[in-house]
Design a protein around this nucleic acid. Structure first.
Lengths: 97, 97
DNA sequence: TTGATAGGCAAGCAACGACTTGCCTATGGT
DNA sequence: ACCATAGGCAAGTCGTTGCTTGCCTATCAA
């Protein structure tokens, strides 16, 4: 389950996409493309970004909604909240009787 | 900096190694090898585990100390604490005056 | 209806990453 | 001194992945 989350976070471009969505939700594919080009000098093809979004979506980090010919993407931070506490000690108080 | 942390966490074997070190600190390379084989049925070569430990070490997730011919490994959770809060909204109150 | 815009699908390529094999160094016990 | 143990270094293999190119579908405006 969280396997996909770790793999999705492994790529720096995908993390930048998450940054952009954290700053402004509901962006379309083309918006994200131009943001990456403008603000981060990442000259990627539309398909490259589309594939990144697919990875983020299967990881549950991005949810998308279709409206007409547009597809808007929103950040979902919920999968992030458990993956790191896995190693943070001291372990959550789980009293073993 | 945290680039290496994300890449280190991307591999499931490395996450299992972190699990083992979270359970018991100060394990040597051979101890980790046998733990992976016994508890997780991961039949890896010593070199494979050694390379994984190197990745974890450059990421700062594992620190090692040499004692004689042994090299003991300890978990360091410090790099984990910032990487996720990066996208957790609402953004930390950073008053822009 | 025609054309422009927003997006999807699939094959191909080049680079990276996990793992192995083979050999070498160093420490410690007997 | 000897040999077994703990670990390191380097090259090679093979699957994965990030990205491109090419083509196709769907929605909206004129």
């Amino acid at each position: 389950m969280s396997e996909d989350v770790f793999k999705a976070l492994a790529d720096p471009t995908r993390r930048t996409i998450l940054d952009e969505l954290a700053e402004r939700d509901g962006q379309s594919l083309f918006e994200i493309c131009s943001r990456l080009a403008m603000k981060h000098e990442l000259a990627l093809t539309r398909q490259a970004v589309s594939q990144h979004l697919a990875v983020l979506e299967t990881a549950g980090l991005v949810v998308s909604r279709r409206e007409g010919r547009y597809k808007f993407h929103d950040l979902n931070t919920q999968p992030l909240e458990q993956i790191v506490t896995r190693w943070l000690r001291p372990h959550p108080p789980e009293s073993t009787p």
